[in-house]
């Protein structure tokens, strides 16, 4: 009787130990193979430019995609309750945060536009962050071109955009649809990418 109980206990213990090994193996396998982070991806809507390079169009619907507008001396900032720093050092700096959309009007990232008034000329920079793809950093020309658009140089980028050079055209397009829930207009950003050759290894 005692021997039978002992034998049953051994089997139980062995089953428990096998369970531990299975648990370790299953957890290791799950941690190794299952992605901890899976970013949502929208299809990249890139077209080939007639004079070389590729083009991609982004836009921001105003006012619905505006996250923040901060500038010194403003009476009512966006969002409500914004306490923009009133320090003299930042008197000439303003910043805006937006959601950015692709050509299909789907939100694909977050953008920041800053304007700094300096003695020599204004500094206008864009950061376009698209989580699944990377980030574009663009230095805009301080002066607008004829027609109101502004051209900027793609200074650098990360991930998918790391090896690209090119330029970005920024322009304001007022809404003319007359629809009740239409935006007041949109900021269009047309990026033209020109790749740089990678050396053969």
């Amino acid at each position: 009787m005692a021997r039978e109980l002992s034998s049953g206990g051994n089997v139980l213990l062995k089953t428990f130990l096998v369970g531990i090994l299975l648990g370790i193996a299953a957890t290791a396998g799950a941690l190794y193979s299952l992605p901890a982070v899976d970013q949502h991806r929208e299809v990249s809507l890139v077209t080939v430019a007639p004079n070389g390079g590729n083009q991609e169009s982004f836009h921001i619907n105003i006012p619905m995609d505006r996250i923040m507008v901060g500038t010194a001396g403003q009476k009512a900032g966006l969002p409500a309750g914004l306490d923009w720093p009133q320090d003299d050092v930042l008197a000439g700096v303003s910043a805006e945060l937006f959601k950015i959309r692709n050509a299909r009007d789907v939100v694909i990232g977050v953008a920041a536009r800053t304007v700094a008034k300096e003695e020599a000329s204004d500094v206008i920079d864009w950061v376009l962050h698209i989580p699944a793809r990377g980030t574009l950093f663009v230095n805009m020309a301080p002066d607008a071109q004829e027609g109101g658009h502004r051209i900027g140089r793609l200074r650098t980028g990360s991930n998918e955009f790391a090896l690209l050079k090119g330029f970005v055209v920024e322009r304001w397009v007022a809404d003319t649809s007359g629809e009740e829930d239409a935006p007041a207009g949109r900021i269009e950003l047309l990026a033209t990418y020109v790749g740089t050759a990678e050396p053969f290894e």
Binding site: L13, T15, F16, I20, L22
Partner: peptide
Amino acid sequence: ALIIGIISGAAIFA
């Protein structure tokens, strides 16, 4: 016993 073992194994590995 097997299920408790699997849970214990997962906890030990984590």
